[in-house]
């Protein structure tokens, strides 16, 4: 006796194939929702903002009168913030990664630091803001200056750099290390001269991604207390400052008072997205140029 009725299977097969086909289309549409939102978002922002972007907008200082307002202060603030964040995260991120990958014995300490880093990555950015407010702004008495914001931001993006650097270090083939040790090189000489140069593309990619996160991040700086008022251009890391996302924030929430503020916010978003686009393109370029050399 046959357990499988071939006719029944054949009859049902059409239905099963149709279900497969329909769901494939649904899955595709679901995936495309992201694209649709992206297009609408870009379209909106460009429609609202593009007309407002001109030389004056980029170079003027802040003003309560929309037609005279500019974002030079925010651009400079973002730049100064990066001048703090880039070296600090690079030192802390790469240092931690080298310690974990090359020096630490695989034991309690190692897994403790590792677990801690992955937990830090999940802490909401606003909590880092509170840490920065309590420790840097008030505790150490920095006030809401670039340095305080930069250090806060550095701790926030640190896990990104650590994880990326660890992956890059792990990808350096063991035979390169062996070659160096075989010449009588010490551990640090090997790391400095062979391992790090081989890992640097991956590390740089991670660093740029971390920086672009810091460029777009708002919440910690709101908590630290970036003034909405007109302030002079920042000239160093000890000056008060504002950044592009903060400018977007203040203009957006005040758009109900002055309608043109929405346009200013959109224009600033365009500038911010262009900055991020440039940073990410650099990261992609580095990644493609140095991909798979071994």
């Amino acid at each position: 006796m046959k357990y499988v009725d071939a006719n029944l299977v054949a009859k049902k097969m059409n239905g099963r194939l149709a279900a497969n086909h329909i769901s494939q289309i649904i899955f595709l549409l679901a995936t495309l929702i992201g694209l649709v939102v992206l297009v609408i978002l870009f379209y909106r922002v460009l429609m609202d903002g593009l007309g407002w972007i001109n030389f004056d907008f980029l170079t003027n200082r802040l003003s309560t009168r929309p037609e005279r307002a500019g974002i030079m202060g925010a651009l400079l603030g973002t730049l100064w913030l990066m001048i703090v964040v880039a070296p600090v995260t690079m030192l802390l991120g790469i240092g931690t990664a080298i310690y974990l990958e090359e020096y630490a014995k695989k034991g309690r300490m190692h897994s403790f630091i590792q677990t801690n880093i992955s937990n830090l990555a999940g802490v909401p950015s606003i909590v880092f803001g509170i840490l920065g407010l309590t420790v840097f702004v008030r505790g150490l008495g920095f006030g809401n200056i670039v340095l305080a914001g930069g250090l806060t931001m550095s701790l926030l993006v640190l896990p990104i750099v650590v994880v990326a650097s660890q992956e890059a270090l792990r990808a350096v083939p063991q035979f390169l290390r062996e070659a160096s040790y075989g010449m009588g090189a010490t551990k640090w000489q090997t790391i400095k001269n062979v391992v790090l140069p081989a890992a640097i593309p991956g590390i740089l990619t991670g660093l740029i991604l971390a920086l672009s996160r810091a460029v777009g991040e708002t919440a910690p700086l709101v908590v630290i207390g970036i003034p909405a008022l007109l302030i002079p251009f920042p000239n160093g890391i000890f000056d008060k400052f504002t950044v592009l996302p903060m400018q977007i924030y203040y203009w957006t929430i005040d758009a109900s008072i002055v309608e043109e503020y929405a346009n200013l916010a959109a224009a600033t978003i365009v500038v911010l997205l262009v900055v991020l686009l440039i940073m990410n393109s650099i990261a992609v370029m580095i990644r493609n140029k140095y991909q798979k050399r071994y």
Binding site: G216, E217, A219, I248, A255, A262
Partner: peptide, 23 residues
């Protein structure tokens, strides 16, 4: 498709906030 999702993930939340509020 994957880069599109990556772009979506890379957009700062402040931009999404603006989008939610004004659109």
């Amino acid at each position: 498709l994957k880069p599109i999702l990556e772009v979506l993930a890379g957009i700062p939340t402040i931009v999404y906030g603006f989008f939610a509020f004004t659109f």
